[in-house]
Computed example of a mutant assay.
Amino acid sequence: MTFPSNNLALAGILFTPDTHTGGPLPAVVVSHPGGGVKEQTASLYAGRLARAGFAALVFDAAHQGESEGEPRGLENPFQRAEDIRSAVTYLTTRDDIHPARIGALGICASGGYVPYAAQTDHRIRAVATVSAADLGAVFREGLGRTQGPEVLQALLDRAGALRTAEARGRVAQLEPWIPANAEELLETASTQFRETWEYYCTPRGRHPRANQGWVLRGIDQIAQYDSYAMIRLISPRPLLMIIGSEAETAYFSREAISRAAEPKELFVIDGATHVDLYDRDAYVTPAVARLAGFFGTHLTG
Rank of each mutant, 00 (worst) to 15 (best):
T146E: 07
A165S: 08
R140K: 05
L143K: 03
E183I: 08
G142W: 00
T164N: 12
A167H: 09
F139G: 00
G169N: 04
L135D: 04
G144Q: 04
V151H: 04
T146C: 06
Q147T: 07
G160K: 07
L152T: 10
L162T: 10
Q153N: 11
L143I: 15
Q147E: 09
Q147M: 13
E166Q: 15
R170H: 14
N181M: 07
L135G: 06
G136D: 01
A132K: 00
E141S: 12
Q147D: 06
L174S: 10
A165C: 10
Q153G: 13
N181A: 08
E175D: 08
T164V: 15
L156T: 06
R140D: 00
R158K: 14
V138S: 00
R140V: 07
F139W: 11
R145C: 01
D134K: 00
L155F: 11
A172W: 02
A165D: 06
Q173L: 15
G160E: 14
L162E: 13
G160F: 08
R170T: 14
L155R: 11
R168L: 14
W177F: 15
E166M: 15
G142L: 09
A161L: 15
L152E: 09
R168K: 14
G142H: 04
N181V: 10
A172Y: 03
A165H: 00
A180V: 13
R140H: 07
L162M: 12
A172G: 06
N181Q: 02
P149N: 10
G169E: 08
Q147V: 01
E166P: 06
G148V: 05
L162D: 10
D157P: 07
L152Q: 07
P179M: 12
R170W: 09
A172L: 11
P176G: 06
E141G: 04
A172N: 03
D157H: 14
E183N: 05
G142E: 11
P149C: 09
V151Y: 10
G160Y: 11
A137M: 00
R145I: 04
A154P: 05
E166W: 05
P149G: 08
D134W: 03
P149V: 08
L152N: 09
P179W: 03
A133M: 03
R145T: 04
Q173W: 07
G160C: 12
A133H: 02
D134S: 03
A159L: 10
Q173V: 15
A137W: 02
P179Q: 09
V171H: 11
E141A: 08
A132E: 08
A132D: 04
T146N: 10
D134V: 02
L162F: 05
A167I: 07
L135P: 01
R163L: 14
R170V: 15
A137F: 00
E166F: 10
A180Y: 09
A180H: 10
L155C: 07
E141P: 01
R140G: 02
V171F: 12
F139D: 05
A182F: 04
L174I: 14
D134N: 01
A133S: 05
L162N: 06
L174A: 10
R145F: 06
V171P: 13
L135W: 01
L152H: 02
V171T: 15
W177R: 00
L152S: 04
R140C: 06
T146I: 13
A161V: 11
A133R: 00
L155T: 06
E150D: 14
R168G: 14
R158Y: 05
A182T: 02
P179F: 03
E150Y: 11
A161S: 12
G136K: 00
L174W: 09
R145P: 01
G148N: 10
R170M: 13
